[in-house]
Simulated scan of single mutants.
Amino acid sequence: MRYVESPKNLAGSACGLAGLALTFTGVAGAYWPVVVAGLYGAGALIAPPERPAPPDFPDPSAQLEALRADFEALRGYLAEVELPPAASGRLTELTGLLAALLDPGWVAEVLAQDPEGVHTLARTVRQDVPEAVDTFVRTRWWSRLTPGQEPPERHLERQLDLLHEEAGRLASALRETEARRQETHTRYLEDRST
């Protein structure tokens, strides 16, 4: 059934019908079956190949919905982990910024237009924060067995600072995008009034 509706069959059928028209006008003569089949074959060969449908990837808003669900799972994990006060404060700042970026509304709409920003946010939520916290918990246990090493809290605090800076750069880029949009609209209105 798929071939019946294909462009090759439709083009071949149209050419085959032209062959039948030639037969009825007397041009094809006794060789009309060869002419009709040949024209059908020629039409099927010159028809464009069937193009496969592109994959149906989720749109950015659906990606953000999945990311919001993953962020809630991350928050549940972080609530169960015991962290030192300085790292806990930095983590609270970071999760607050991530929550603001993922909050449904106009920020999410702007973020959805920036695939690199969505990727950065997804990497932070799904990989970087859980890895930093889990590595700290594991290293803290080992540091109790071998005192005198650099405390794992310093590494965790530095990692959280770096992640906060990255999320801050993303928020700044989104703000700049909106500022450029506003400036562009102002110029448009100025140009329109002249």
Results as ranks from 00 to 15, higher is better:
Tyr188Val: 13
Ala42Pro: 02
Ala99Ser: 04
Gly12Tyr: 08
Ala69Ser: 07
Glu166Tyr: 03
Ala28Val: 06
Ala62Pro: 01
Leu174Tyr: 03
Pro85Ile: 05
Arg192Phe: 12
Val133Asp: 02
Glu116Asn: 14
Asp59Ile: 14
Val4Tyr: 12
Glu82Met: 13
Asp70Gln: 08
Pro104Gln: 10
Phe136Met: 06
Asp114Ala: 12
Pro85Glu: 10
Ser6Cys: 03
Ala79Gln: 08
Asp114Asn: 08
Glu72Ile: 13
Thr184Gly: 01
Thr25Met: 15
Thr184Tyr: 05
Gln149His: 04
Lys8Arg: 04
Gly76Cys: 13
Tyr40Thr: 13
Leu78Ala: 11
Gly148Ile: 12
Ala42Tyr: 11
Gly41Ser: 12
Glu80Gln: 04
Leu102Asn: 00
Gly117Asp: 05
Thr120Pro: 01
Arg187Ala: 10
Pro58Met: 10
Glu190Lys: 13
Arg144Ile: 09
Ala87Thr: 04
Gln113Met: 00
Arg51Lys: 03
Gln182Pro: 00
Arg123Asn: 12
Glu116Arg: 09
Leu162Glu: 09
Tyr3Gln: 13
Arg138Pro: 02
Arg169Lys: 02
Val129Asn: 03
Ala18Thr: 13
Val27Asp: 10
Gly29Ala: 08
Ala122Lys: 00
Phe24Asn: 06
Ala132Trp: 09
Ala69Gly: 03
Ala30Lys: 01
Gln182Asp: 06
Val125Thr: 05
His119Asp: 04
Ser172Phe: 11
Glu50Asn: 07
Arg192Ile: 07
Leu78Arg: 02
Ser6Phe: 08
Glu50Val: 15
Tyr31Ile: 06
Gly38Leu: 09
